[in-house]
Design a protein around this nucleic acid. Structure first.
Lengths: 144, 144
DNA sequence: TATATTAGTTGACATTTACAACTATTTACA
DNA sequence: TGTAAATAGTTGTAAATGTCAACTAATATA
C-alpha cells in the first residue's frame, strides 16, 4: 500500500481548524486559546468521573505543566473549579462551573457549524473513515 | 449525517505525529523543531519552481514572519540557500543545499517508518479516505 | 519503616502565535 | 509620467506553547 508520510500532511493542516474556531470565538468576544477551549470541552464531554489534570493532559497528549497553566487561567476566570480528591489528596478533581458550561455550549454550536462547512461535500463513509483513522492513530501512538 | 465536531479530535491528536517524529530525530542527533522539518520537506518535494517564503507560509498555513524566522535558522545551518529573484527583487527564492537534501532524505525514511506503524491495521480504502478528507478540509478552509 | 511511584507545582528557555508596522519593490491606474 | 495600491519580506512584541528538569506532598509497595 502506498503510504503518504504524515509529516507534511499534519504540517499543513493541523492549524486550520483551530484558527477558524479561534477567529470565530474572537468575533463573539471570547479570547481564549484553542487549547483552553479544548480543556473546557474535555470537561464538558466528561470521559469519566472525577477528571483530574493528569487525565486532561493524557487526553490532549500534552505536558502536565501546560495543562496546569491552562487550568490556572480557566479557574481564575471562574469557568472551572478545582477540588481536592478526598480519597487521594494528590489529585485535583476539576469541574465546569455554570459559567463554563454556558461557554462550552456556545463553543459546541460554533464547532458544529464550522465542522459542517469544512466537511460539506464528503460522504458519510469518508468522514467515518477519517474518524476511524484518527482513533486508530491515537491508539497506535500509545503503543509506540 | 452525524458530525463529530473537529475541535476535540484535532485537539487530541494534532501533536501526536510531530512529537513522535521529533523524538526519533532527536535520537538520531538532529534537534530541529517540527515546523523546521516541514519547511525542509516542503522544499524537498517542491510543489512548484522557485519556491519563496510566501509559498511556504501558504502551504503551512502559517504567518510569514514565522516562516522568515525558520528560514533564517535553516540558512544559518547551511541547509537551505536564499537568492533574490532577478525578475522580482521583492522575492527570495529558496533552495535546499546538498546538506539539506541529505537531511530531508533521512527524515523522509523515518517519516515513512512511523507513518507505516501508525497506519498499520487500516485498509487502503480507509487511509485513502483519510487523505481525501484532509485535502478536502484544506480546500474548504480556503473558501471560508 | 523505607523506598518507589504518582500528581501537581515551579522554573527556565526556545519556539510559536498573532498581530502591527515598517522598507523595498512591483503593479495598477489616472 | 507620476502616484497610489499591493506585495514580499523584515522587525518588533506580548502572550502562549513546547519541553524538560527539579521540586513537594501524598500514596503504594516491599
Amino acid at each position: 500500500m502506498e503510504i503518504h508520510p504524515l509529516g507534511m500532511i499534519i504540517g499543513s493542516m493541523r492549524g486550520i481548524f483551530p484558527r477558524l474556531m479561534i477567529a470565530r470565538m474572537n468575533e463573539l468576544g471570547f479570547h481564549y486559546t484553542f487549547d483552553q477551549w479544548v480543556v473546557l470541552m474535555v470537561l464538558a464531554f466528561k470521559k469519566k468521573q472525577d477528571m483530574v489534570q493528569q487525565d486532561i493532559a493524557e487526553f490532549m497528549n500534552k505536558d502536565k505543566s501546560l495543562v496546569l497553566r491552562i487550568v490556572d487561567v480557566l479557574e481564575k476566570d471562574a469557568l472551572i473549579a478545582r477540588t481536592t480528591d478526598l480519597n487521594d489528596r494528590r489529585r485535583n478533581i476539576i469541574n465546569l462551573t455554570t459559567k463554563g458550561r454556558d461557554l462550552t455550549n456556545l463553543f459546541y454550536k460554533e464547532e458544529q457549524l464550522i465542522s459542517e462547512k469544512l466537511l460539506e461535500g464528503l460522504t458519510e463513509e469518508e468522514v467515518n473513515s477519517f474518524y476511524k483513522v484518527i482513533s486508530h492513530v491515537k491508539s497506535r501512538a500509545q503503543e509506540l
